[in-house]
């Protein structure tokens, strides 16, 4: 089965690293994978989206309407790229909303965004990954925590197995102890969900 995963957030949140981990894990699982990344200008705090395609795929970009999972590191950006999703697809979101640093721009609230995603018929799960990662000592591990949470919900089936993801984290992140711990914490939180 082909899997189309959108990862969205704000430049600097470790979005490309998250995608790299997924790609390594897919390789470990023996699956074909393509990751289309956003580099350059938008990495400076702009809107960033990465397309991860697993399976019998050839083109790098997910067409609108065909994504089956969205991992959102930031709420506004998660909502922005929800248009890539299929009806009824899943959204796993970090409970973090960063108003864009534009003077006098009104940002919606986290509750508004979650509500509108649900109202659009998407299956929405959320966790405060930054807060949980901070408890482990490093806010930058919010991304692997969210990955663990996603895996724990069973949403990465056909992409990678939990063990494979752990190995992938160790391959991609140089000093990976906290990142792996965060990943495990994510798994645990999902089982409580």
């Amino acid at each position: 089965m082909d899997r189309n995963i959108v990862i969205a957030g704000v430049g600097g949140q470790g979005i490309i690293t998250t995608a790299k981990i997924l790609a390594e894990a897919a390789l470990i699982e023996g699956r074909n994978v393509l990751v289309a990344e956003t580099h350059g200008l938008s990495q400076r705090g702009g809107s960033v989206v990465v397309h991860v395609r697993v399976g019998d795929v050839e083109a790098p970009l997910i067409p609108p309407g065909m994504g089956d999972l969205l991992i959102g590191l930031e709420a506004i950006e998660a909502a922005r790229y929800a248009s890539l999703l299929a009806p009824g697809a899943s959204v796993v979101m970090n409970e973090d909303l960063q108003p864009p640093p534009l003077p006098r721009v009104k940002a919606p609230s986290l509750g508004d965004v979650l509500g509108s995603l649900k109202a659009a018929g998407l299956r929405v799960y959320s966790v405060n990954a930054v807060e949980e990662a901070l408890k482990l000592g490093d806010a930058r591990s919010a991304n692997t925590l969210l990955l663990g949470y996603t895996a724990g919900l069973g949403l990465l089936e056909g992409v990678a197995r939990p063990g494979g993801l752990e190995e992938a984290i160790a391959r991609v992140i140089r000093r990976s102890r906290t990142a792996v711990e965060a990943y495990r914490r994510g798994l645990e939180l999902a089982s409580v969900h």
Binding site: G45, A82, P100, L102, V105, K106, A120
Partner: peptide, 10 residues
């Protein structure tokens, strides 16, 4: 998705 999303330029 019915939400008014502000743009996020870099």
């Amino acid at each position: 998705v019915e939400a008014s999303l502000p743009p996020r330029p870099p």
